[in-house]
Design a protein around this nucleic acid. Structure first.
Lengths: 340, 340
DNA sequence: TTGTACGCGTTATCAT
DNA sequence: ATGATAACGCGTACAA
């Protein structure tokens, strides 16, 4: 049985209060007392019971990070940074996956499930625009949204400028002289926010350059996986008038798409240039290396943790938005990078 | 303020006891009472306080998964499976990274840090053999070790037969007619268990085939990362008598190694065949696709969760070991697979 | 079948 | 500067 505060107090012949004071580094404790208590703590190998402390203080010291799938490189790299950023300010992180289960995502958010076990939620949503709006009122738990860019002032937000990121990626392709530029990752209009924003950026870039929008070049992808990227590119390339460049809404889609290009007997970037979004490490070692848009996950993680701790401190503070920077990283897959 | 058990009791005009009975599905509650309580629960949107319940019962319903780095694909894919397997039996998962911090790993294990917040630990260790031995006595918390294969009956274990896995991988290279087979991933003798076991398997396979052991072909790697694989392969290939095949102790090392081969102006598998261990998804889309040893993470995850829940139920049960199956998966990087 | 009362281990309030 | 004691919200032994 682990030793309790009372055991320590008895052993040191002081009150529990004094032990608690010593533990929390309270100023006004005599040296004599302090050393006596410290000795007792060491003797008994006492460690405070976090659960009891939580019951009393209402703070668990835990954050929940909710992502669609932890094994998607972008999210695991984000998780790494979030865990590290949280550790620096004394928080630990619980990770939950929503899979692609719509209902589960709602549960996690409305708290049907989560019951007081964490102090705040970092949520990388796959929800639709409408649900995003409804959410505001649903939860009273500190919440920071990750990755969306649709600020309406109701909740904290670490956003990516998806529209610009997509426009920049597409513009890069255009600057190469490509004219039939496909996109992989679009989703139905009533669907998630991210793909819609990226489609908007893609189309804006084409318009800016005076290129026509060809619906046949806008290819959907249900999940942002390698498999979906592969299948989508395969279809695109089989068309009578195939693209000479592909903008993928994620690096993972791009990895699949590149493989499909090779399997079709074509070359990247000579026949088809490919660019993604996320800047996952995989793309720095693939053949060819993958051009992409870097999203600065360390920045996102740090900002998110800073926002959530601020909100935990002051639940009534006005919601804030911080927009993470992004940058096009040209590599071999658009013929403009150096190997390695 | 969230409603408490007492609020519900007052509202329904019953005692807290009755409400608690209803919550826990107790048999002998009259229908009238039950519906009255249920109504009150719904009215107040009551949800039990997990922390209070934990303080009372000693169970948190949380498992900790400790891995070196969550953004290493093998671990993130493992985490995905563990989270899912745990969810099926009502557990949630907290993820901690040890980084490559030796001290942190010890802290997490000895409990200097973890204080009662979870019911058990799933630990994918990077510890040394000696520490593994010391550990037995150090912790009293339910603990299941993942990935090691050095069972001494003191703790539960979901093991990989690292020696055989490495031997099988090397044997596959030998069956291709390769004779100068390098290995990337070795570490000093006083170091971690996994690399030592894999080195043992590698050397056993060479001996079995009557090939000589060349110390120059056994290349160390501090982390099992793409960068380390790249650097190691680069050195190997620059030698006067370069290898015609490379066995990497992880798929990630292999991804880096393959890139180094190309950058040296050589081909995979024609000039240098490459095989890894882990079977991460990345290797199924890389160019060429990566031959590897599959470790069956879903099996490992399921077994680990089954073991930990069993141990939580009965802390005094004898320790058990389950060995996960593995299988060589030939793909393009050893010239024996089919594309795709 | 249901109500009362205590304890889980802490922190915080009120004294002194 | 320190001691006694009341919460925090729940589960359950004991009573009724």
């Amino acid at each position: 049985m682990p030793a309790t505060l009372r055991d320590v107090a008895d052993r040191a012949n002081v009150s529990m209060r004094t032990v608690s004071n010593v533990m929390s580094g309270y100023e006004h404790v005599s040296e004599k007392m302090r050393s006596r208590v410290l000795a007792a703590i060491a003797d008994l190998d006492y460690r405070p019971n976090l659960v009891a402390r939580t019951l009393r203080t209402g703070r668990t010291g835990m954050l929940a990070l909710i992502v669609p799938e932890i094994d998607v490189p972008y999210f695991s790299e984000l998780a790494r940074d979030v865990i590290n950023a949280a550790a620096e300010v004394g928080y630990r992180v619980m990770i939950d996956q929503t899979g692609h289960d719509h209902e589960r995502e709602r549960q996690l958010l409305t708290g049907d499930d989560r019951t007081m076990l964490f102090d705040g939620i970092l949520f990388s949503p796959l929800v639709t625009r409408d649900e995003l709006r409804e959410m505001n009122t649903a939860t009273s738990m500190p919440l920071v949204l990750l990755g969306e860019h649709e600020f309406d002032g109701h909740y904290d937000h670490v956003a990516i400028d998806n529209v610009r990121a997509a426009r920049d990626a597409t513009a890069h392709l255009i600057s190469l002289g490509r004219t039939r530029i496909a996109a992989i990752g679009a989703q139905p209009a009533e669907s998630y926010a991210t793909p819609q924003q990226r489609t908007a950026g893609y189309e804006a870039a084409l318009r800016d350059a005076g290129l026509e929008l060809d619906a046949a070049l806008l290819h959907p992808a249900a999940h942002y996986s390698r498999a979906d990227g592969y299948a989508a590119a395969q279809e695109l390339l089989a068309a009578s008038d195939p693209p000479d460049a592909i903008f993928c809404y994620s690096d993972l889609l791009a990895m699949g798409a590149m493989r499909a290009v090779f399997d079709a007997g074509l070359r990247v970037p000579e026949d088809v240039a490919v660019i993604g979004i996320d800047d996952i490490e995989e793309g720095r070692y693939s053949r060819p290396t993958l051009s992409t848009v870097s999203l600065d996950t360390p920045f996102i993680a740090r900002s998110a943790v800073a926002r959530i701790t601020a909100r935990i401190e002051d639940p009534d503070a006005p919601a804030e938005e911080v927009v993470a920077p992004h940058a096009v990283i040209p590599r071999e897959s658009t013929g403009s990078g150096t190997p390695g």
